Simulated assay, not measured.
Amino acid sequence: MNSNRMVVAQRGVIPPPKHYADSAWFKYILSCCAATTAEMVTYPLDLAKTRLQIQGEKGLNGSSQRSPYRGLASTGVGIIREEGMLRLWQGVTPAVYRHLIYSGTRMVLYEKVRDRLFTTRADGTRPVWQAIVGGILVGGIAQFLASPADLIKVQMQMEGKRRLEGHAPRIHSAGEAFIKIYNAGGLRGLWKGCMPNVYRSAFVNLGDLTTYDSVKRYFVNTWALSDDYWTHALSSACSGLVSAVMGCPADVVKARIMNQPTDSKSRGLLYRNSLDCLLKTVHNEGFWALYKGFIPCWLRMGPWSLTFWLTYEQIRNLSGTSAF
């Protein structure tokens, strides 16, 4: 019983539950609203993270085209100074489109899998291994469906930097990027970088969904904390940190695969596949290059997770939907 129903119950009147409040389509809409809010708030951090991850790549001719390695704050200030304030949200449109597919799918699927297949112990907790499998599975499926939007987002994020370096613009809008990618490689081209994207999402969901769900239930059932704002905030802080640690290496590979130039058959000119990108990155730049951009990655995933889960839990409560 959520808080608003408890207040009414104390007055002696319990309203009938709304017939749509716990339906899959309604939860899908709520998760999309929460994800859009989190994306708009934290998107500049994602842009800075992507710029940092691309730095230091080896070009086709073997020369390193390096930009000065700048931290999160100086990268953000540099973007504002060189490209303008609004460029901090460059690529946000496909990012929102992505979450309309990705977040809605992963949240609804995970809840369905959890409620129907997970084992519930007497104390209300569930086996962590089941949560891990569930998080990896739904994260991979959701990201596969949303991969074209992610591809467009990454390419738009790098446009400002390309123009400053004197290159001709590749794209001017999300629609133009979609058409250009499709014309160059067909449907297959829209899923360029799909596998590192799916791997990344599987690990991120292992950190996000699995950690949040498991930690929250541990706090509520073992520590007897209330299922309220502070419990949500503490659980989301844990999930943001674990997500960053698990997802950063795959995120670096994903960004480089998606940003690389391609031939007429939509084949990468720098990396053959995800494994090739991983090995070349480690060989040319060292292991810790896989954690390049980790701080902005963490600083982005932490606030994103906090904003998303607080928003999601609150609008579920206000809508009469049961707690996650």
Score class of each variant (00 low, 15 high):
residue 6 M to F: 14
residue 9 A to T: 12
residue 10 Q to W: 07
residue 10 Q to R: 14
residue 11 R to H: 05
residue 12 G to H: 14
residue 18 K to W: 05
residue 20 Y to F: 15
residue 24 A to H: 14
residue 25 W to M: 14
residue 29 I to S: 09
residue 35 A to R: 00
residue 39 E to Y: 13
residue 39 E to H: 14
residue 42 T to H: 01
residue 44 P to I: 01
residue 50 T to M: 11
residue 51 R to Y: 15
residue 52 L to P: 00
residue 53 Q to C: 07
residue 56 G to R: 00
residue 59 G to H: 12
residue 62 G to E: 02
residue 84 G to A: 12
residue 85 M to P: 04
residue 85 M to N: 13
residue 86 L to Q: 15
residue 88 L to C: 12
residue 90 Q to V: 10
residue 95 A to K: 01
residue 99 H to M: 15
residue 107 M to R: 06
residue 108 V to K: 00
residue 109 L to N: 01
residue 112 K to M: 09
residue 113 V to C: 09
residue 114 R to F: 09
residue 115 D to C: 13
residue 117 L to G: 09
residue 122 A to T: 06
residue 127 P to I: 05
residue 129 W to L: 12
residue 129 W to I: 04
residue 132 I to W: 12
residue 133 V to T: 14
residue 135 G to I: 01
residue 139 G to Y: 06
residue 141 I to W: 00
residue 142 A to H: 04
residue 143 Q to H: 13
residue 149 A to C: 15
residue 154 V to L: 08
residue 156 M to G: 13
residue 159 E to S: 13
residue 160 G to H: 07
residue 166 G to A: 11
residue 167 H to G: 12
residue 168 A to N: 10
residue 172 H to E: 11
residue 174 A to M: 04
residue 178 F to V: 02
residue 179 I to D: 15
residue 182 Y to M: 15
residue 183 N to V: 15
residue 185 G to W: 11
residue 190 L to P: 00
residue 199 Y to N: 06
residue 203 F to K: 02
residue 205 N to R: 04
residue 209 L to W: 10
residue 211 T to D: 02
residue 214 S to Q: 14
residue 220 V to E: 06
residue 220 V to D: 07
residue 224 A to P: 06
residue 225 L to G: 05
residue 226 S to T: 07
residue 233 A to L: 04
residue 234 L to R: 08
residue 234 L to P: 05
residue 235 S to H: 03
residue 237 A to W: 02
residue 238 C to H: 02
residue 240 G to P: 05
residue 241 L to T: 10
residue 241 L to I: 10
residue 242 V to P: 00
residue 243 S to Q: 06
residue 249 P to V: 07
residue 250 A to W: 05
residue 251 D to H: 08
residue 253 V to E: 01
residue 253 V to Q: 04
residue 254 K to A: 12
residue 255 A to K: 01
residue 257 I to H: 01
residue 262 T to R: 02
residue 266 S to E: 03
residue 266 S to V: 11
residue 269 L to A: 11
residue 270 L to H: 02
residue 275 L to E: 11
residue 279 L to I: 11
residue 280 K to S: 06
residue 284 N to I: 12
residue 288 W to A: 05
residue 288 W to D: 10
residue 293 G to S: 02
residue 293 G to C: 03
residue 307 T to R: 11
residue 311 T to W: 01
residue 314 Q to G: 15
residue 314 Q to D: 14
residue 314 Q to T: 15
residue 317 N to F: 09
residue 319 S to P: 02
residue 322 S to A: 15
